[in-house]
Design a protein around this nucleic acid. Structure first.
Lengths: 194, 194
DNA sequence: CTGTATATTCTGTTATATCTGAAATGTCGG
DNA sequence: CCGACATTTCAGATATAACAGAATATACAG
């Protein structure tokens, strides 16, 4: 299959961005290709289109399936697996966010708890350190609960919400404006507000 | 400087997580060390503590400074640079989010615009592809504006907001519950809601 | 059972990222 | 300007990740 200039550009860029997010370039490119493709593609064709080894495609597809953003389908009279990407970006985002949380944030929270515990046991520990650990822990837990909020919204609401520019301050209880975003370089205590 | 068990655990884990986010392991470790440290550390000591080459520390610190989450300070009577981490996790998060947006999302939005343009010019292009590109573009733009909203909130509000579990649906206009999070596998059109 | 088409796993190679140690550069007191 | 200390740069070494191609496994038709 020959790629149009627009397809090429998108696929290459997506691959590039993938690497910055800890995703293998080929994996990201395959995903981009499938996302743009109007119908399911067999592995063979993916390999030919992107110019990578068939085996490489196989591994990459398995990873994408692992993330849950690509799945296999079948065509009548064709023994080969055909692959499709999730069609909806919002849904895709939800899945990726959930996976990353599970793989990266949750373990970190667990480790932080252990560290706090350790710091408590160990000879009264460094007070400063314990505070920092707790601050990080509180932050991550807040983000998790914020994540749960957003996750529970249907796509439509989320989309509408995002369009609601500049209204958040009025909606969120007690949110005074931050406005100028001026961060005085001298502030050393993050708890200054509140 | 000798590390306590809790420090070790946190620093090692942070380094590990760093790699998953496209951040160099040493860079992340140094950041973790500085975050926990009660006072500024000279590069020499960082190198000794983590057991890496002095030159490596130098490069890593420059990167952290580039991100704006570590800065250099000086002690009276000491010619060496001493380094400190931003103390506030929330502030840190803001800065990192902003940087990543600038480096990764903004360029992607630009590329998507070009792709859409290309697809329009090129022989009426693939209709399906153009739709997908537009959906992705709309998504990213929504996320950007959502990001602007959150960024403009002071830490206190953000934190309070995050604690406000399960209330979001009532606050957001028109957000009907999504609840069960049941995703029928048969839905192929992401726009089904709304 | 055999042959063919497809998919996966394995192994060695290649590419990329990271790290080190040495050399170069910068800084500052005297 | 000199000399010590501190930092940065750079070339080569090392580790890690990605990849191609061969080998293997699986499914299936006849």
């Amino acid at each position: 299959m020959k790629l149009s200039p627009a397809q090429q550009k998108f696929i290459l860029h997506w691959g590039e961005m993938g690497t910055r997010w800890g995703v293998n370039r080929t994996v990201a490119q395959i995903h981009a290709l499938l996302y743009l493709s109007p119908d399911p593609l067999p592995a063979e064709e993916i390999a030919a289109t992107l110019g990578v080894a068939r085996s490489n495609v196989s591994t990459s597809l398995r990873e994408l399936e692992g993330w849950g953003i690509v799945r296999v389908t079948h065509q009548l009279g064709d023994r080969r697996d055909h692959f499709v990407s999730l069609p909806d970006v919002w849904e895709m985002f939800r899945i990726i966010a959930q996976e990353r949380k599970r793989r990266e944030v949750d373990p970190t929270v667990a480790v932080l708890r252990e560290c706090v515990q350790l710091a408590r046991e160990t000879a009264a520990g460094d007070k400063h350190m314990r505070e920092r650990l707790l601050a990080m822990l509180e932050f991550l837990e807040s983000m998790c609960s914020l994540y749960e909020e957003v996750r529970s919204l249907p796509t439509g609401s989320l989309r509408r919400f995002a369009k609601l520019r500049g209204q958040m301050r009025r909606i969120i209880p007690g949110a005074l404006s931050r406005d100028a975003d001026a961060r005085p370089a001298t502030r050393t205590n993050g708890e200054a507000e509140n």
